[in-house]
Simulated assay, not measured.
Amino acid sequence: MNLPKAIKDLVDAQNSFDSTAYANCFAETAVVSDEGRTHNGRGEIRDWIEEANQKYRSVMRPLDYTENGASGVLSAECSGTFPGSPVVLKFHFGILDGKIRNLKVTG
């Protein structure tokens, strides 16, 4: 599967639990929506993924990726220490200048 570099780097960072590398995949003013919460800016994104990594130890296995211009949707099997693991989630990305500018995670 041919993933944009920012998304491939994000999956690699997630699977190695590297919250700093994960956050660096995002634009400085990026926005992430997940589990009913919104995280604004690279600092909040790093804090959010660090907390999630400690809590859930989630890893991603990409299943499918579709792209439409600067937007894309990654379907990935996510497994970890959370109830219902594993689960397939959809990651809705907006990418600009090689950085993720927005991400919405849905079930």
Rank of each mutant, 00 (worst) to 15 (best):
A30F: 02
Y65Q: 08
T106P: 08
I45K: 11
P4L: 11
T81H: 02
Y56I: 02
L74T: 05
L3G: 09
L89D: 06
D34E: 09
H39Q: 10
L3M: 13
G43F: 02
D64T: 08
A76K: 10
C25G: 06
C25N: 06
S71C: 13
L74F: 04
E51R: 15
E44H: 07
V32R: 01
N68C: 14
S58G: 07
D47I: 09
D47L: 13
L63I: 07
V88T: 15
T20G: 03
N68W: 05
E67R: 14
G36R: 11
T20F: 04
S71G: 06
F93L: 00
K55S: 14
S85T: 15
F26E: 02
Y56A: 14
F82R: 06
C25W: 07
A27R: 06
V11Q: 12
T81S: 14
F91E: 11
C78I: 15
S33F: 00
C78M: 13
V73D: 10
H92C: 10
E44N: 13
E67C: 06
K90D: 11
N40H: 12
S71T: 15
D97R: 09
G84M: 03
D47S: 15
G98I: 05
G107F: 13
D12V: 06
F17S: 00
G41W: 01
R57W: 04
L3T: 04
E44F: 05
A76G: 09
I95F: 07
E77S: 12
L3W: 12
N2S: 11
S58F: 11
G41M: 05
F26H: 07
S19Y: 02
A13H: 00
D12G: 04
V88K: 11
N2R: 08
